[in-house]
Computed example of a mutant assay.
Amino acid sequence: MSKGTVLVVSSSADTLELQGGKRAEIGVYLNELVVPAMALVAGGYEIVLATPNGKKPVIDAVSRDASHFNNDAAAFQKALDFFDSYPAMVNPVTLRTTVEQGLDSYAAVFVPGGHAPIVDLAQDEDMGTVLRHFHDTGKPTALLCHGPIALIAAVPQMKAFRAALDRDDMSGAKAVGGGWPYAGYKMTIFSNDEDKVAEEQLLHGRMKFYVGDALQAAGGIVTSNTKVFDPHLTEDRELITGQNPRSDHLVANALLAALER
């Protein structure tokens, strides 16, 4: 018998606009999506995958590598098979559908990263509705790597806030970021130092804004590890956040523990 259903909300974006009009191919990281999802299924939970447009997430090509699975070729293949064939992965629904059908039946929500959530989830009104529901009901809300940037979708003046971010105007963002449900929460996200490495080695351009700065502008208390790319987890009330791809198992375990509580 199922222990309950967890809503997995993923971006389906595949390109990120950088400063100067440049664009980079991006997506969702395979391990960030499937490691927690597989842990939930193994723990007795059903999952529903939702994206803003109902399309299957695009996996970032950089993440299609066994190095993200401790160089375990079998674990990497298992992850690929899960993404390619597990029913919830193959048949995502739209975020709007989950909102219209009601969120009360979901026990928790999980958002994986990769740079993709910056593009759509962070400025999706339905994402804001989902987050406010889980915040108001105190149900576990877990986000990984760049996934926590989706939290700004719950800023009441989200459009103005996002416009300020795209101008890299953090003071302007602070001015319109009031009323955020997660103000004063401790949280983590892919750090500025980590994104500077990504800019140089993967994106080949400068991002419009750094995601940690965005969360701080909204009122979050952002924590980071002492060494880049080392795993790091932060928990505060219903909120569970992991800093980077190597935090996948930490987030999965913390979410399962919170569900059991």
Rank of each mutant, 00 (worst) to 15 (best):
M127W: 10
M127C: 12
M127P: 09
G128K: 08
G128C: 10
T129Q: 13
V130M: 10
L131E: 10
L131F: 14
L131I: 13
L131P: 07
R132A: 03
H133M: 05
H133L: 06
H133Y: 14
H133E: 02
H133I: 01
F134E: 04
F134C: 11
F134G: 01
H135S: 09
H135I: 04
H135R: 10
D136Q: 13
D136E: 12
D136I: 05
D136K: 11
T137L: 01
T137D: 07
G138C: 02
G138Q: 07
G138L: 03
G138K: 05
G138Y: 01
G138R: 02
K139M: 09
K139P: 03
K139F: 08
K139H: 07
P140V: 05
T141P: 07
T141A: 08
A142P: 04
A142M: 06
L143G: 02
L144H: 08
L144N: 04
L144T: 00
L144R: 00
C145K: 03
C145V: 05
G147R: 12
G147D: 09
G147H: 05
G147L: 12
G147M: 10
P148R: 06
P148G: 13
I149V: 15
I149C: 12
A150E: 07
A150Y: 08
A150D: 06
A150P: 03
L151H: 00
L151Q: 01
L151Y: 04
L151W: 05
L151G: 03
L151M: 09
I152Y: 00
I152M: 02
I152W: 00
I152K: 04
I152Q: 02
A153I: 00
A153G: 01
A154D: 00
A154M: 01
V155T: 04
V155Y: 04
V155L: 05
V155R: 03
P156Y: 13
P156G: 00
P156R: 07
P156C: 04
P156S: 06
Q157L: 14
Q157I: 10
Q157Y: 11
Q157A: 14
Q157E: 15
Q157W: 10
M158T: 14
M158D: 11
K159I: 14
K159F: 14
K159S: 15
K159T: 15
K159H: 15
A160S: 15
A160T: 15
A160W: 14
A160D: 15
F161G: 05
